[in-house]
Amino acid sequence: MECNIKREKVVVANPKLFGDRERTNILRGGEQQLILFLLKKLPTWVSPNFMTGIGMFGSVLVFAAFILAHFYGTSWLLTGISGLLINWLGDSLDGRLAYYRNIPRKWYGFTLDIVMDWLSIVLIGLGYYFYANNVQQILAFLFVVLYGWSMIIALLRYKITGAYQIDTGRLGPTELRVIIALILLAETIITGTIGYFAIAICVLLSIINITDTLKLLKDGDARDKADKGSR
């Protein structure tokens, strides 16, 4: 008696391709599958640095969307959603492309990635600063400061524990882009809601950063004790 069993084909991302950092974010599974699919489709003339430039262009587009929305109406914020998508595309594929083609430059790429991420956040925060009114402008400043704090935590964690992790629990840069995109969409529907969402994001980032800082201090203390014990 013959049994025909249908096996579902499961594509698993190359672990080496994503092995340089720990990912814990909600969307990591589908995101890595999509990245792997896109890497296979990129033409050979597209370089990792070119993708970095694409990501930066996306951030400039978000900045421009805020400026245009300030002068010509909130519908221009929809352009910012496209900018976030373009930013994700460039930021997610630049380093992965280098690993995929077996041409990684670990420390060069690490440095470029950190600098571009910081400039992107500054551009997004600056755009919101020009779009916001009066007191709400301080929220743009707080957003940049708090996100910068989270980046410092990631770098300190890397130094202390040796693990490079860009996510905070189940939230990562991709989830943050999705949240910002939804906020921009909500603002085009109901003008003025962006301020409330900005407050919520700042409060959330504050809680996360304080929690992570306290945990990192414990890791640092444990590292100090381990170093003393090894002498």
Rank of each mutant, 00 (worst) to 15 (best):
M1D: 10
E2H: 12
E2T: 15
I5K: 09
K6R: 10
K9Y: 12
V11C: 02
R21H: 13
R23D: 09
T24A: 09
N25H: 13
I26S: 07
I26P: 07
L27F: 15
L27V: 15
I35P: 09
L36S: 12
L39T: 01
K40P: 00
K40H: 05
L42C: 13
P43Q: 15
P43C: 15
M51F: 06
M51C: 06
M51L: 15
T52R: 04
T52E: 07
G55R: 01
S59M: 11
L61M: 15
H70V: 05
F71I: 06
G73V: 12
G73D: 03
G73C: 07
G80K: 08
I81W: 04
S82A: 15
G83F: 11
L84Q: 03
L85S: 09
W88A: 07
D91G: 15
D94P: 11
G95I: 10
G95L: 10
L97E: 06
Y99P: 04
N102P: 01
Y108W: 11
I114T: 11
I114Q: 07
M116S: 06
W118H: 08
L119T: 01
S120Q: 05
G125H: 09
G125M: 12
G125D: 09
L126F: 10
G127A: 08
N133W: 06
Q136M: 06
Q137V: 07
L139P: 05
L139N: 13
F141A: 08
F143N: 09
S150K: 01
L155C: 03
L156F: 10
I160F: 14
T161C: 14
G162V: 11
A163C: 14
Y164G: 03
Y164M: 07
T168N: 14
T174D: 12
I179L: 14
A181D: 08
A181G: 09
L185I: 02
E187N: 07
E187D: 07
Y196E: 07
A198L: 14
A200R: 02
I201R: 02
C202L: 02
C202T: 02
C202S: 11
L204N: 04
S206K: 08
I208F: 13
N209R: 02
I210R: 05
T211Q: 14
L214Q: 02
L214R: 03
L214E: 00
K215R: 04
L217Y: 03
K218D: 11
K218A: 13
G220W: 11
D227C: 11
S230Y: 03
R231P: 06
